[in-house]
Computed example of a mutant assay.
Amino acid sequence: MSSTRPDAAAVPPPVLAVREVTVRFAGLTALDAVSFTVAPGSVHAVIGPNGAGKSTCFNVLSGLCRPASGSVRLGDDDLTRLAPHRIAALGVARTFQNIVTTEGTVADNLMLGRHVLTRAGFAASALRLPGAVREQREHLARVREIAELTGLAEHFDAPVTSLSYGDRKRVEFARALCLEPRVLLLDEPVAGMNAAERARTAEVVRDVRDRLGLSVVLVEHDMGLVMRLADEVTVLDFGRRIARGTPDEVRRDPEVLRAYLGTELSGKDVA
């Protein structure tokens, strides 16, 4: 359909490059010259203890926070000082730590994710002009596909308030996918879930990455999930990058072991 990115799976997403990003709040340095690169089609985890700068990093990537210095580029596009809606239009979608859903059905919530892709104006939609009706029908069909992909098909017409916690978190994940992103930012996607919900969500994230060919940047405290899903890991501590590499490399890094909870953790504990 004209309002999606039909070649998203066929064409790899561009490289997401974070270069020397520094963020300060009232004299406090939240990020200190942080750099990392997200390879096309990879799952890249950003981890670290509480207060390490992970949320600030995500806020920079999604345009909610502007750095004092440094840059963020998605391929040839400079995202550093763009507004959130412009970053979203370039193909960067984000979920949040806390569930952000509206009243209504799963379908209603997922359709909200299509707003950046909607071409028909308010008047055309309100008057139900043929072009607007056709576009709405196409969006709804795509939303059904994404609900199927994320395991929400059986709940498509159900009120969001009737769903379990894990399913409501998955609604937010699916709504981000409805933007047809090239890069998906997942902020603690399994926080508060039980073991079965965490396993299901990890499976969905892996399946979405493989089938849609997008890049995933993941912030998550569940180290078991991070080590299973991530292709590469960046570790922050007090706003500085202290390690990067594959999960196996990071889990054995002495700086990482010292940083977590301020104790000498074993590689088994971090795994």
Rank of each mutant, 00 (worst) to 15 (best):
141 A>P: 12
141 A>T: 13
142 R>A: 07
142 R>H: 14
143 V>Y: 14
143 V>L: 09
145 E>A: 04
145 E>Q: 14
146 I>E: 01
146 I>G: 01
147 A>V: 03
148 E>V: 03
149 L>D: 05
150 T>I: 01
150 T>M: 03
150 T>N: 02
151 G>K: 00
153 A>S: 14
153 A>W: 04
154 E>D: 15
154 E>G: 15
154 E>F: 00
155 H>T: 12
155 H>N: 12
155 H>G: 02
156 F>A: 10
156 F>G: 06
156 F>M: 14
156 F>R: 11
157 D>E: 15
158 A>K: 15
159 P>M: 13
160 V>E: 00
161 T>I: 10
161 T>K: 15
163 L>H: 00
163 L>Q: 00
163 L>I: 02
164 S>Y: 12
164 S>V: 11
165 Y>E: 05
166 G>C: 02
166 G>Q: 01
167 D>V: 04
168 R>Y: 01
168 R>H: 01
169 K>M: 05
169 K>H: 05
171 V>K: 10
171 V>Y: 13
171 V>I: 13
171 V>S: 12
172 E>M: 13
172 E>D: 12
173 F>N: 00
175 R>N: 03
175 R>D: 01
175 R>S: 00
175 R>W: 06
176 A>M: 05
176 A>D: 07
176 A>Y: 08
177 L>Y: 07
177 L>H: 11
177 L>P: 09
177 L>G: 10
177 L>W: 08
178 C>S: 09
178 C>R: 02
178 C>K: 02
179 L>Y: 02
180 E>Q: 12
181 P>K: 11
182 R>E: 07
182 R>N: 02
182 R>W: 06
183 V>M: 07
184 L>P: 09
184 L>D: 09
185 L>N: 02
186 L>Q: 10
187 D>K: 06
187 D>Q: 02
187 D>Y: 07
188 E>T: 09
188 E>H: 13
189 P>I: 04
189 P>T: 06
189 P>D: 07
190 V>S: 08
190 V>I: 11
191 A>I: 01
191 A>P: 07
191 A>R: 07
192 G>K: 06
193 M>G: 03
193 M>K: 05
195 A>F: 12
195 A>E: 12
195 A>Y: 06
196 A>Q: 15
196 A>D: 13
198 R>Q: 12
198 R>T: 10
198 R>F: 04
199 A>I: 10
199 A>F: 12
199 A>S: 13
199 A>H: 15
199 A>T: 11
200 R>K: 12
200 R>S: 14
200 R>P: 03
202 A>T: 04
203 E>I: 01
204 V>G: 11
205 V>E: 07
205 V>G: 07
205 V>N: 09
205 V>Y: 06
206 R>W: 03
206 R>V: 09
207 D>L: 08
207 D>R: 15
208 V>D: 03
209 R>P: 08
209 R>C: 11
210 D>K: 15
211 R>V: 06
